[in-house]
Design a protein around this nucleic acid. Structure first.
Lengths: 180, 180
DNA sequence: ACTCGACATGTCACTATTGACACGTCACGG
DNA sequence: CCGTGACGTGTCAATAGTGACATGTCGAGT
């Protein structure tokens, strides 16, 4: 299961409580890579602890438990990451919508495509605007994660934006032709 | 559930049997947008038929049933597609791996990033090579789906390729600095 | 003293999905 | 005639994941 490795990865970067991990999934991680709610995170942490891949490093206020990755956990994570790129699971509702546009009539399709182009263009711009100069932040640090995600997000929105523009042009040409 | 709409979308483009739908999910659809095996497709088709969104249009050899979308099904699909872009579900194991690179030590990270850069560069090239001139194929046709997917794929691989190159450069700079 | 919102963890029923197994058909080549 | 591989549909147990519900703590502001 990927949730297993997502948690190991987050804990490898920085020891965290279940609550903090849940927060992580609400950010770029959940937006681009993998979603999970606290109801799956807490049980998974328990399982990981039983398998010796993580351990409770600290118990704090309000019954909070801070988990840390163990040496075995790190080994397991590394093995998973370095493994040959198999065809991993993919589920993306937005992309599904994009592909299914071909099932709409051209007029509806154009409306949708324009919406997508507008939205992704905006988002890409926003992300660029908040991209700060971070030459001194190393990847292999708690902040590195955010850097990687931010740069990925920009490219992602650009890609979809460019795709939508291409599709709009194609579709308009098509409509022109059918009018004559 | 998105599987519902994926099936409606495919059937809106062209009536198909469960077997043919299963094949569809093995192509670009499953690669970029949404996965499903025949064990979830057949029961879902039954449910859709019960709800009146699809119907059996034809029974062929080997007990095959060709399903077609109904008017109600088309309405349901259109509603789903045109709805305001909510934050749909996202699960992508490859992207998860990419983000978790920050949990590796820099040397391993470089190896992985170079692998990703190489692989995505190759794939983008392959896709470009097989991109045929298809000026006369309209989107809103069975072939339209493949067109949309192919163009998306190219941009997708380019985006990840560019991301990996950026990450490699950053990481190398980092390593240089720490050496001095 | 009280209230509110963030912090923090948990259960449980239900739904979705996967993987293993199972079964039968049709066309083609040897 | 036989084998093989693609075609074609299905069940079932197990696992994964979601949403509703439940419970309590702590700090800050009023």
């Amino acid at each position: 299961m990927s949730l297993t490795h997502a948690l190991l990865g987050l804990l490898a970067v920085r020891p965290s409580s279940g609550y903090e991990l849940t927060r992580s999934f609400e950010g770029d991680l959940g937006r681009y890579a993998w979603q999970a709610g606290h109801t799956s995170i807490y049980p998974e942490l328990t399982k990981l602890a039983e398998r010796g891949l993580v351990e409770v490093a600290h118990e704090g206020a309000r019954g909070s438990r801070t988990y840390a990755i163990t040496t075995e956990g790190r080994a397991e994570l590394r093995e998973w990451l370095m493994a040959p790129p198999r065809g991993g699971r993919v589920r993306n509702e937005q992309v599904l919508r994009m592909f299914l546009i071909s099932a709409l009539d051209p007029k509806d399709a154009l409306v949708l495509l324009r919406g997508i182009a507008g939205h992704t263009g905006e988002r890409a711009g926003e992300l660029r605007a908040i991209r700060v100069e971070t030459d001194d932040v190393p990847f292999t640090s708690p902040e590195g994660f955010g850097l990687l995600a931010a740069e990925y997000g920009i490219r992602q929105y650009d890609a979809v934006h460019s795709w939508a523009l291409w599709a709009i042009e194609r579709l308009e040409k098509e409509l022109d032709r059918s009018r004559t």
